[in-house]
């Protein structure tokens, strides 16, 4: 199957996933309710001759479930793209924003402002935290050896920075969090889109549309890194400029996403792998298809998170970790067999 066919399939699956996910929940809704609500709010209901929706189903679709599902889709798409870019630039198939300390850094930033009560600054703090963690990880990896970023060193550096950020986060919580702040920070640390509003959709979706699309266009550049920095440079690619530009893009995008969803792990790790098995390792196909797959994946992971133990809800990060950790282990196992 060729790339356009996969892309069409991915888009159809994503739209179907969004519609279906909105209908799933404690109150029974049908695809018709979703259609009526969406067309009416978009102002094309009359044009299409759609009967206006009832107030209650409409509120559930438009105010509660749709923003949540769309935020999940945007976060999933963005994290998958970030994962592909990080894996390519660090030449590490196990790299993802979570593993390289970005999410932990963002969490630390977020925990700090939540404790200080400055919730409005949360996206900024998450972004600053993500960037600081990325810089620390790459600096540590680069300083601990010469000749570019060796895969193993980068992961170890990410692990160290992530652990440090996690410890600092725990300290912040232990020292100064009170009452409700605990739950707020905890839900944030485990990743959740439960509180998503249209503002979340705008921030996460906007970041994906702007930064995610830009990153998804860099397939040929990322291809050049396949055999390492030296090979990329010998192919005429300005290695350092490309690497830092793309990594800053990844940090910006991760910061924006994590500010809305908390740190959701494993999406950026396992989705690119699955898509590679289908379409191969060339990035021009891999990037957009991973974005589509990541979006559908997180939509369903979030649907599971809110329905499995109904009426209790799980943070979606627990679901992605429950699926992702075994897959991660399988990848390690496979890598061991090959080496």
């Amino acid at each position: 199957m060729r790339t356009p066919a996969w892309a069409a399939l991915g888009a159809v699956v994503l739209v179907a996933s969004v519609v279906l996910a909105v209908t799933i929940g404690p109150a029974a809704l049908g695809p018709g309710d979703v259609w009526r609500s969406v067309t009416t709010h978009l102002g094309v209901g009359d044009l299409l001759g759609v009967t206006p929706p009832d107030r209650l189903p409409d509120a559930m679709v438009w105010q509660l479930r749709l923003p949540r599902v769309l935020t999940a889709a945007a976060v999933g798409a963005g994290l998958a793209v970030c994962g592909v870019v990080m894996q390519s630039l660090t030449r590490n198939p196990l790299a993802d924003p979570y593993l390289l300390g970005l999410s932990s850094g963002a969490s630390l930033g977020a925990a700090c402002v939540l404790v200080l009560g400055a919730t409005v600054l949360l996206p900024v703090a998450a972004f600053v935290g993500a960037t600081a963690a990325l810089v620390a990880t790459l600096a540590l990896a680069a300083a601990s050896g010469r000749g570019g970023l060796a895969p193993a060193r980068t992961v170890l550096a990410g692990l160290a920075v992530g652990q440090l950020a996690a410890a600092a986060t725990s300290f912040v919580i232990f020292w100064s969090a009170k009452g409700d702040q605990y739950r707020e920070i905890l839900s944030w640390l485990m990743g959740s889109v439960a509180g998503a509003t249209w503002t979340s959709v705008a921030i996460a979706g906007g970041a994906v549309l702007v930064l995610g699309t830009a990153l998804a266009c860099t397939g040929s550049l990322l291809d050049a890194f396949t055999f390492g920095d030296t090979a990329a440079s010998a192919l005429g690619v300005p290695v350092q400029r490309v690497r830092w530009t793309l990594l800053v893009g990844v940090a910006l995008l991760t910061g924006a996403l994590v500010s809305q969803s908390g740190s959701v792990g494993f999406v950026g790790l396992i989705l690119p792998h699955a898509v590679r098995l289908l379409v191969g390792a060339r990035h021009r196909a891999l990037l957009p298809l991973s974005a589509l797959a990541g979006a559908s994946f997180l939509v369903w992971a979030d649907t599971l998170a809110r329905t499995v133990f109904e009426p209790r809800e799980l943070p979606v990060g627990i679901v992605t970790a429950a699926i992702g950790a075994p897959v991660f282990a399988a990848l390690l196992w496979k890598g061991r067999a090959r080496a």
Binding site: P93, G228, T230, L235, V237, G280, A281
Partner: peptide
């Protein structure tokens, strides 16, 4: 280079196409 390798599932044709960069 010496020992240029990749962990990615890359086909030979795709690897050679990188030379067109």
């Amino acid at each position: 280079e010496q020992d240029a390798a990749t962990d990615l599932p890359l086909t030979v044709l795709d690897a050679v196409l990188l030379g067109r960069t």
